[in-house]
């Protein structure tokens, strides 16, 4: 541990105040989400705890608000702060898993396309191109729609999480494949790869031990951007009714539910989940940006 605190990365982290603030916010979001069942003031999905008498309460600093519900309640009397914490749990889970899946698929295929080249390259990249001509959300809709047909009706709710992770993950892989392929093409022609070939290192080893570490830099940055994209995709899918079921609402579901009440004056139902989403996305992004610079040995 002391080695970490002596390292260049920790030094550059300490000397970047923006990153420190962003990291603190990101950690707050992540801990709030992960520890929701323990630290949330209410359990909004426990019917015994909610009361319709508390419905549509404004945030506590407005005259008619109650201190018990700091950010107000929705039309069913659920505490907004608690729903945000439970919701971001699902949003984060979906986004992180979808991005991880797309990284594995995209980096793998991109590396293969760039390194092997020729027909393999053409086939992989044409598939990526074709997929990119469709809006990502349409692809996700299509895939989750098709996947639903194969899942038995009584298991749909329990498998919804996996279906949505898969359908969002599939929409994201071409970004990684393209980036990784183009950096692989650059790295492949560098002399250190030729040196490894002269030494007699096997092609797979060159691919994974020499080329892969050198093409991962941009992947990290895209991954953080894509976590934001994935959260938004998930929200859209949930809004369209093919995402998370109402029994497990995500941040996106909360925003889209809340917007029904915007015009009747209950702005807090949609605005607070929205702010939570922005804080989460921006802070994760800033941390990713810093990480890109910190991990680049040439900038150290």
């Amino acid at each position: 541990m002391s080695r970490f605190f002596d390292s260049d990365i920790w030094w550059s982290f300490k000397h970047s105040p923006v990153t420190v603030v962003a990291a603190v916010l990101a950690l707050l979001c992540i801990f709030g989400a992960l520890l929701a069942p323990i630290i949330a003031p209410h359990n909004p999905y426990d019917l015994a705890q909610i009361s319709l008498l508390d419905s549509n309460l404004p945030p506590m600093w407005i005259a008619s608000g109650k201190a018990e519900f700091p950010l107000g309640t929705d039309q069913q009397g659920r505490d907004i702060l608690s729903t945000i914490m439970y919701g971001s749990r699902i949003s984060l889970l979906v986004a992180v898993c979808a991005v991880l899946m797309s990284i594995v698929v995209g980096v793998g295929l991109g590396l293969l396309a760039g390194y092997v080249g020729g027909r393999v390259d053409s086939i992989i990249m044409r598939i990526a191109d074709i997929q990119l001509t469709f809006p990502a959300i349409l692809v996700a809709l299509l895939i989750s729609g098709i996947a639903r047909q194969f899942v038995p009706r009584d298991m749909q709710d329990s498998l919804a999480l996996y279906v949505i992770i898969f359908s969002i993950g599939i929409t994201l892989w071409p970004h990684y494949a393209r980036t990784v392929r183009s950096s692989t093409l650059v790295e492949k022609s560098k002399e250190y790869v030729q040196a490894a070939r002269v030494i007699g290192v096997s092609q797979t080893k060159i691919m994974f031990k020499h080329v892969l570490p050198n093409v991962l830099g941009p992947v990290l940055v895209i991954a953080t951007l894509n976590i934001a994209n994935a959260i938004i995709s998930e929200a859209t899918l949930s809004f369209l009714g093919v995402g998370m079921p109402p029994t497990q609402p995500s941040l996106g579901t909360l925003i889209s539910e809340g917007q029904n009440y915007l015009f009747s004056g209950e702005w807090w139902i949609t605005v607070f989940p929205g702010i939570a989403l922005i804080v989460m996305v921006v802070s994760v992004n800033l941390v990713g940006d810093w990480l890109r610079d910190a991990l680049n040995p040439k900038l150290r």
């Binding site: 560098k190 002399e191 250190y192 030729q194 040196a195 490894a196 002269v198 030494i199 007699g200």
Partner: peptide
């Protein structure tokens, strides 16, 4: 084949590209 590869080695032109930076 391995023995032959071991026998023949190469030094490259650009010292900035011939060593893996990571």
């Amino acid at each position: 084949a391995r023995a032959l590869r071991r026998k023949v080695q190469m030094i490259f032109q650009d010292p900035y590209a011939s060593l893996n930076p990571r």
